[in-house]
Amino acid sequence: MIVNATSDETLIHQCLAGRREAFGQLVERYQHRLYHGLLHVLGSAEDAQDIAQEAFVSAFEKLSSFKGQAAFYSWLFRIALNASVSARRKTRRMSVSVETRREENGLEPSDENPSTEPSYAMDVADRQRLVRQALAELSEEFRTALVLKEMDGMSYEEIAEVVEVPLGTVRSRIHRARLELRAKLATLLKPELL
């Protein structure tokens, strides 16, 4: 069993005691997770990077106000979501078409598909593109809840902390997001794939 060496709480205490490198460990620990989640919530690699960066810096600034009532990551993601709302007020990058966004954001399907059969790569690429397209068409509330659940692996309780809504609302949003996504994909994918 792999056990993490130092808890978030300890790292936060160390950081507040003057050890900046402790915060660096927190960044390394959560950068990929945060980035991956934001990528699918925001639909843009560039935005995800900007917001992740802003969130970490903001978390560093506000670290002394972190009370430990929620997990550090939940707190961090909440900061990131708030930052994304602020950023979107300034720019309206989300309004571009899904196709354009796909080309811009570098979210091409993995090129690691090892099959020698081109059809595999095409199938996977097409399907991922369609799923991404359908996901991007969901309302932000639904998309955020679903991404946090399915791609980030948060519990409903953690999602409720992040988006600051009651638990029942999280349950409802995830369900409705699934319904909508399923409906959208039903028109895009072969029935046997959904």
């Binding site: 950068q31 990929h32 980035y35 991956h36 990528l39 560093f60 399907p109 791609m151």
Partner: peptide, 18 residues
């Protein structure tokens, strides 16, 4: 389907920028 996406890693420069 949602889990079929490859895990995207943060850009390498993110840590240094932060």
């Amino acid at each position: 389907l949602l889990h079929s996406f490859p895990r995207e890693s943060a850009p390498v420069e993110l840590v240094s920028k932060i």
